[in-house]
Amino acid sequence: MPSSPSNTYIIIPSFNEGRVAKRVVLELLDLEYQVILVDDGSTDDTIRLLSSLPIHLLRHRVNLGQGAALMTGMCYAKKMNAEYVVHFDADGQHDASYISDLLTPLRKKETDVTLGSRFLDPSSIQRIPKGRRIVLQIARWINFAFTGLLLTDAHNGFRALNRKALQKVNLNESGRAHATEILSEIKRCELQWKEIPVMVHYSDYSRSKGTSFLDGFQVLGDLLTSKIRRT
């Protein structure tokens, strides 16, 4: 069956998130998805905690960044002949029940890429901390300036790609700027995209792991230097 969970691979980049990542993985395994966890050079007990689980566990020997971990996961998914891939965070803030919502338009062949948005459902918007809401609104306009795509959300990380998109998208940004680069790739490869409402659960843990306001400057710096390098 082409759309069964067994040919849908959930790619989880993880860096020092052992316990939380294990909880996330178990939840996904319950839903019978194939899980690719890319351990990005963790120094905690991630490998010990996850090595006994029936997942595809890939290990970066040194920490490269979330973008590089995602790209490794995508290369592996290509080799596994994946039909669909979903990018999913290891910190427990993404809700696995929304994966099917992201996959439905892909299965119906309406689009090539679905991007989770926290700003399409009013109840979801209320859950976003106020400061973060402002930062995200600024970030979506920065994304627009760099990519030409104006979305309702920015740097959410919860997205799904079909095989066509998986084959075409190529990430060079190893750090957090990959989230903007993916949008550039969607445009460059002329892929169809659609935003889907998703809920993000904020905990003290996920907030400490998420992109801070200062990280935003780092992302902006990465984007600018990358732009200069390519011109």
């Binding site: 020997r61 490269l64 790209m71």
Partner: peptide
Amino acid sequence: YLRTVDLQKKIEALVRKDALDQAL
């Protein structure tokens, strides 16, 4: 700076290839 970026990309390619080869 350009040399550092170039080196970083080479290390990245090596680490990623190693992860893929090992998993396969």
